[in-house]
Design a protein around this nucleic acid. Structure first.
Length: 478
DNA sequence: CTAGGGTTAG
C-alpha cells in the first residue's frame, strides 16, 4: 500500500490543530479511565475478536464514537492495534485519520515509529523520525531507543549511529538502554572489540558523572555474551569480575551467557564450576542454565556430570528435553558396560522418560536392550524389546540377535523363541544368525526335537542354517 | 496529562 505517499501528504498539513473537546463532552464507552487502561481494554477486545471480524468491529467502533472523536482517541486505537500486532491495520487507520479531520501529533508519530519497527521496517521508522524533526516535533528517548534497537538487531549499525547523532542534536541524549541496544548490535555483527571499547567509554564517562549514566548489568551482559559467542569466554569472565567490583549484580542471564560460552568452547566443566559459584553468590539457576550445561556436557561426552546436572534439574522440578534425555540415556548405557553400578541409573532415567511421555529413539532402544543383556537383565531387555515394537519401531536384526543370544545364554530358550515369533508376526524375515543361535542352544540343552523344528522352520523360509541339529549322544561326545 | 525501550540455549 502507499503508506509512504499518504504519510508525506499528512505530514505537510500537520500544522493545523483540531479544536479540543472539553472532557465533559466525552460520552459513550470511553470516559474516565486513563489512556493506558483504554488501550489495554482495546487490545483485549481485538484479541478476543476472530481476525476476520476485526475490521468490522473497528469500523463500528469508530463510527459509534461519532462526534466525540479526539486525536487522543485515534492514538489509543492505533496504539491498541500495534500492541495487538495488527500492524497493517494500524497503518491503515493512521492513513484514515486525515479523512476524519485529524492531523497526527507527536504521540501518533511515536506510535508509528514503533509500528514500523515491529514490522521489521526500521527504515520506514527512520523516515517518520526525519519527518517529525522537520516539523519541529521531538520524540523522546524511549521512542528513539525503540528505533535504534530495531536497526541494531538487524545489523544496521550505521543507520543506528545516525539516529543516535540526531538524538543529541534535538537535545535528547541516549541513555544506558539505548547504548545497550548498540552494544548488542555491535556484537551481533561481530564487532565485539568495538563493543568492548564502547563499554569502557561508558564506564569512564559514568565516573565523570555524565548524564548518560553508568553501564549497568545489561551492558556488561551484552558484551560478555559477545565475547562468549566468539570463543573468548575467559575474557567474558574477566568482565564478570569487573562488573561485580563495580557493584553490579550479575543475574541468571549473565551467567547463562557464560555457560553457553564454555559449553561451545568444549569446556563444560568450567561451566559447572561457575554454576557453583553462581549459587554461592545467591543467584538461582533457571531452566536455560541447566539445559545449556546439560547439553554441553552431553555434547562433550561428560556423561556422569551430565547425570548429576540432570538429577538436580529433576530435584528442582524442571523437565528435560526429549532429545537430551535420549542422549543422556545412551551415554549412561555405554558407561554402564564399564561400571555396572550405572545400570540402575539407566533404569531410572528410562522410567522417568516414560513418565514424561518422551519417546525413546530407536538407537536408544537398541542400546538399552544391549545394556540390559550385558548387565544380565535379559528379562528387562525382553520387556524393552516388546515395548519398542509396541512404540512402532521395529528393532534391527542385530538387536534381535543380541536379544536372542542374551536369552539363550541364560538358558531361557522359550523366551528366545518368542522373540522369533515377534519377528515373524511383524511380517519380517528373521536372519539366519537368529536360527543358528537357537539351534545351538537347543543342541547345548540336548533337545534334538527343538533343534530340528527350528532347523525345519529355517528351511521353510529358504535358509540353510550353518548350525545343524545334533543328536544328544553326539553332542555329549563332542 | 496520556505509552513506550535493553541481556540468555538448541
Amino acid at each position: 500500500m502507499n503508506c509512504r505517499n499518504t504519510f508525506r501528504v499528512q505530514s505537510c498539513c500537520f500544522a493545523s490543530n483540531s479544536s479540543a473537546l472539553s472532557s465533559s463532552e466525552m460520552k459513550g464507552e470511553i470516559q474516565e479511565s486513563n489512556s493506558k487502561a483504554k488501550v489495554k481494554q482495546l487490545v483485549d477486545k481485538i484479541r478476543a475478536t476472530p481476525p476476520k471480524e476485526r475490521s468490522k468491529v473497528l469500523e463500528f467502533m469508530i463510527e459509534k464514537q461519532g462526534d466525540t472523536k479526539t486525536i487522543g482517541y485515534f492514538n489509543d486505537l492505533i496504539m491498541g492495534l500495534v500492541m495487538a500486532e495488527e500492524l497493517d491495520y494500524a497503518l491503515k487507520l493512521f492513513d484514515e485519520m486525515s479523512m476524519h479531520g485529524f492531523s497526527p501529533d507527536c504521540w501518533t508519530y511515536s506510535i508509528l515509529i514503533r509500528c514500523y519497527c515491529k514490522k521489521n521496517q526500521p527504515d520506514e521508522g527512520k523516515r517518520v523520525l526525519d519527518c517529525m524533526i522537520e516539523n519541529g516535533l521531538r520524540p523522546n528517548v524511549v521512542t528513539l531507543t525503540i528505533l535504534v534497537n530495531s536497526l541494531c538487531s538487524r545489523g544496521r549499525l550505521q543507520k543506528a549511529f545516525e539516529v543516535m547523532e540526531m538524538m543529541g542534536k534535538v537535545g535528547c541524549n541516549p541513555n544506558v538502554q539505548t547504548y545497550n541496544c548498540v552494544l548488542k548490535g555491535l556484537c551481533f555483527v561481530g564487532r565485539v572489540e568495538e563493543a568492548y571499547d564502547m563499554l569502557m567509554d561508558l564506564k569512564n564517562k559514568g565516573d565523570s558523572k555524565e548524564s548518560s549514566g553508568n553501564p549497568d548489568i545489561y551492558s556488561y551482559t551484552a558484551v560478555m555474551d559477545g565475547f562468549c559467542k566468539v570463543g573468548r569466554t575467559d575474557e567474558a569472565m574477566e568482565l564478570l569480575e569487573e562488573a561485580i567490583e563495580m557493584g553490579l549484580t550479575p543475574n541468571v542471564v549473565t551467567y547463562n551467557a557464560l555457560f553457553n560460552g564454555y559449553c561451545k568452547e568444549g569446556k563444560p566443566r568450567k561451566g559447572i564450576k561457575l554454576l557453583k559459584l553462581m549459587k554461592d553468590r545467591g543467584c538461582v539457576p533457571d531452566y536455560i542454565s541447566y539445559s545449556t550445561l546439560l547439553h554441553g556436557l552431553l555434547k562433550w561426552g561428560k556423561v556422569m556430570v551430565a547425570y548429576w546436572v540432570y538429577s538436580e534439574m529433576v530435584e528442582v522440578g524442571f523437565k528435560v528435553d526429549e532429545r537430551m534425555m535420549n542422549s543422556l540415556l545412551r551415554g549412561l548405557c555405554r558407561n554402564s558396560w564399564e561400571e555396572e553400578e550405572l545400570l540402575k541409573n539407566v533404569y531410572e532415567v528410562f522410567v522417568k522418560m516414560k513418565s514424561w511421555d518422551h519417546s525413546i529413539f530407536p538407537d536408544t532402544y537398541y542400546l538399552i536392550i544391549q545394556t540390559f543383556c550385558i548387565g544380565n537383565e535379559v528379562d528387562m531387555a525382553l520387556i524393552t524389546l516388546i515395548e519398542m515394537v509396541e512404540a512402532g519401531y521395529f528393532p534391527r536384526m542385530v538387536t534381535i540377535n543380541r536379544m536372542i543370544r542374551g536369552l539363550c545364554e541364560e538358558g531361557k530358550i522359550s523366551k528366545a523363541l518368542s522373540v522369533l515369533v515377534v519377528v515373524c508376526e511383524a511380517g519380517k524375515i528373521p536372519s539366519k544368525i537368529s536360527y543358528n543361535i537357537l539351534i545351538d542352544e537347543f543342541n547345548r540343552q540336548g533337545f534334538l526335537l527343538g533343534a530340528c523344528s527350528v532347523y525345519g522352520a529355517a528351511l521353510k523360509l529358504g535358509m540353510i542354517p550353518h548350525q545343524m541339529p545334533l543328536n544328544p549322544q553326539q553332542n555329549r561326545s563332542l
